[in-house]
């Protein structure tokens, strides 16, 4: 049944469902939660291309998120650039930094790569903290304007949510195309065995760099959306802690799964909202959920859903067989 669904249709369906969501929600407050879910999903989507498909870890992706957010915030606020220009500059800056750090870092493997990206993330956060004259320092940067594109300001939360969900749907479609392409096959080959991929004539370092920059661009776009949504950015949001959370979202959603990335981000972003009723022990339950998910759903949410679908279809097939 799942296979029967034409692949190209599912982003459209997802888009439709995401667009309909605010109209069925009981409280408009949830729209803000969903906006943050969409923004996080965008970063996780990019990180999943890097980690899930190409097998390269990054413990510093919060930095690209932060670079996009801060660059756009500072350029549009302090220097009064038009917002589209600030956005573009933020994304380009993140891409340029990703290129600079990616060239030497991607020569490293496994834990050494993790360490290098972690170090990069720490350095960026300290820079955001200490360049007070530019970034406003640890207490944050205030007064970022709401996003305006082509003369339309996304003033209401609902319109902003549509913008974020739309961007996410676009990113999903783009990622699916990428994965199905020659590049996608090359990335998976690198994940399985870099040596074998090289032997088969795959230009591994170039592909790795490409996907690293692409994932940084996803993160920076999310950062831009985030800054112009909140109207405020502070270095604490872009630290090591958030980088680790992003990795957790990728793995919990399901490695090498586009929908898993979206589900993982949405699940972990909204989980604290559900756990709030537990008051003091919410943080404990959060940790426990992580451990239990990994024990019982090693393939993440996506893997779990696939397994469930398989069991169900077997059941149905079994019934059909008996009948």
């Amino acid at each position: 049944m799942r296979r029967a669904l034409p692949g190209a249709l599912s982003p459209v369906l997802f888009f439709a469902a995401a667009m309909a969501a605010p109209f069925v929600l009981s409280n408009q407050y949830y729209v803000s939660v969903m906006t943050l879910c969409a923004i996080n999903a965008l970063i996780v989507l990019g990180l999943n291309l890097l980690l899930g498909f190409a097998g390269q870890i990054s413990l510093g992706h919060a930095a690209f998120f932060g670079i996009g957010a801060y660059a756009s915030a500072i350029l549009t606020t302090t220097y009064a650039w038009p917002i589209w220009a600030g956005m573009l500059a933020g994304v380009c800056l993140a891409a340029a930094v990703a290129w600079l750090i990616g060239v030497p870092a991607l020569k490293l493997h496994g834990h050494y790569l993790a360490m290098a990206t972690l170090g990069f993330g720490v350095i960026v956060q300290i820079a955001l903290n200490e360049t007070t004259w530019l970034t406003g320092g640890p207490s944050g940067f205030v007064g970022v304007p709401r996003l305006t594109l082509f003369g339309y300001t996304f003033a209401s939360d609902r319109s902003y949510y549509f913008l974020c969900a739309g961007t996410l749907a676009l990113a999903v479609a783009l990622s699916r195309n990428l994965i199905a392409s020659r590049t996608g096959r090359a990335l998976r080959a690198i994940h399985t065995s870099e040596g074998a991929a090289t032997a088969m004539g795959v230009h591994t370092s170039r592909y790795k760099l490409f996907v690293f920059i692409l994932s940084a661009v996803y993160a920076a776009v999310a950062g831009v959306l985030y800054a112009h949504y909140l109207g405020f950015v502070a270095p604490a949001s872009f630290g090591f802690h958030f980088s680790v959370q992003l990795i957790t979202m990728v793995v919990l959603g399901g490695m090498a799964s586009i929908w898993g990335a979206v589900a993982g981000a949405a699940f972990l972003t909204s989980l604290p909202e559900f756990l709030r009723a537990l008051e003091n022990i919410d943080i404990l339950v959060y940790g426990l959920v992580l451990v239990l998910c990994m024990i019982y759903l090693p393939g993440g949410l996506a893997g779990g859903a696939a397994k469930l679908a398989k069991i169900l279809s077997n059941r149905i097939a079994g019934h059909a067989g008996r009948a």
């Binding site: 990795i247 943080i283 404990l284 940790g287 990994m294 024990i295």
Partner: peptide
């Protein structure tokens, strides 16, 4: 989860650290 991939194990330890801290 000893047969899980390295990255899954990392997430498990992150979960454990959150629990211990809590």
């Amino acid at each position: 989860v000893r047969r899980a991939t390295a990255i899954n194990l990392v997430i498990v330890t992150i979960g454990v650290s959150i629990c211990l801290r809590g």
